[in-house]
């Protein structure tokens, strides 16, 4: 089975966020670049499936050179092949458009992706990509098991403590929720080894896209980035820790009607 895992490199510590020059994205200065959390679980699920049933696990990411750190981490964890698509967009529309083209070029039986990235907080790229390719999709997946070559059994979280089990025909795309499996340990020797592994690159031209074809789209512009502390005027308790604690205790007792 050919599994492709879509992963994203996201800022770990965010230093500053600015609107990009073209106003169609954000320039984020980050103290670190990390593996997006739900994508890590997607990779884990892929590696478990490959371990049980054989086949190939490919990781694919969109972005600049920086994403190669995350792709190498995925190789160290056990991915067979890593691909970087050299393009990056703020909005889910253009991202899913390019991602669908890249996935079609790479080929797959099953696509796994995280449910949400910690930088865009949009939850729309993976499902959008599936919809563009006409693939069946499941969101909020906490478990995947193979039934046969053409079918997987999928556990989907519904919220409110309930879940459902679905049979899904392949090819399909599944959006993986965090926490379904524990992330396995990566030996440091594998990390060192992965530094010398090649990463394949796909540019827009190889996908048959002129860059302006993708950029035609934006029907939005970002006006500004601002701090939002004032959304509900929270009353900040200030002073020495002891003083804050005294005020807090009094409020808690008042609100629970357990007056002193």
């Amino acid at each position: 089975m050919r599994i492709v895992v879509c992963v994203k490199a996201v800022p770990g510590i965010v230093r500053t966020v600015k609107v990009s020059e073209k106003r169609d994205g954000l320039d984020i200065q980050a103290g670190s670049i990390i593996f997006n959390e739900s994508d890590e679980y997607a990779l884990e699920e892929a590696l478990l499936l490959r371990g049980k049933h054989g086949g190939q696990a490919t990781v694919l990411s969109m972005g600049g050179l920086l994403v190669e750190d995350v792709l190498r981490l995925a190789l160290a964890r056990g991915a067979d092949r890593a691909i970087r698509v050299a393009a990056s967009y703020y909005d889910g529309q253009r991202t899913s458009f390019v991602l669908a083209k890249a996935l079609e070029k790479v080929g797959f039986d099953l696509v796994l992706a995280g449910m949400e990235s910690s930088d865009s907080l949009g939850s729309q790229v993976a499902v959008g990509t599936a919809a563009r390719m006409g693939l069946p999709f499941v969101f909020g997946v906490t478990g995947v098991a193979m039934i046969d070559d053409r079918t997987v059994s999928v556990t989907k979280e519904l919220g409110g403590g309930s879940s459902e089990v679905l049979d899904v025909s392949l090819p399909a795309l599944l959006c993986i929720q965090t926490g379904g499996k524990s992330i396995s340990y990566t030996p440091p020797a594998k990390l060192i080894q992965a530094r010398r592994r090649p990463i394949d690159m796909i540019g827009l031209a190889e996908l048959g896209l002129a860059s302006d074809e993708v950029c035609l789209n934006p029907t939005f512009k970002i006006i500004e980035v601002f701090s939002h502390r004032s959304a509900r005027q929270s009353e900040i308790l200030s002073g020495q820790t002891g003083e804050i604690a005294r005020r807090a205790a009094a409020i808690l007792l008042e609100k629970t009607a357990r007056k002193a």
């Binding site: 996201v10 800022p11 965010v14 230093r15 500053t16 966020v17 609107v19 954000l26 984020i28 910690s118 930088d119 907080l121 029907t219 939005f220 512009k221 970002i222 006006i223 500004e224 980035v225 601002f226 701090s227 939002h228």
Partner: peptide, 20 residues
């Protein structure tokens, strides 16, 4: 005009054409 969260404890304000 829509507002949405961005990382680093901030929000972005976007100007979008309709349909949206």
């Amino acid at each position: 005009i829509v507002e949405r969260p961005v990382p680093g404890g901030t929000r972005a304000r976007l100007e979008c054409a309709m349909p949206l």
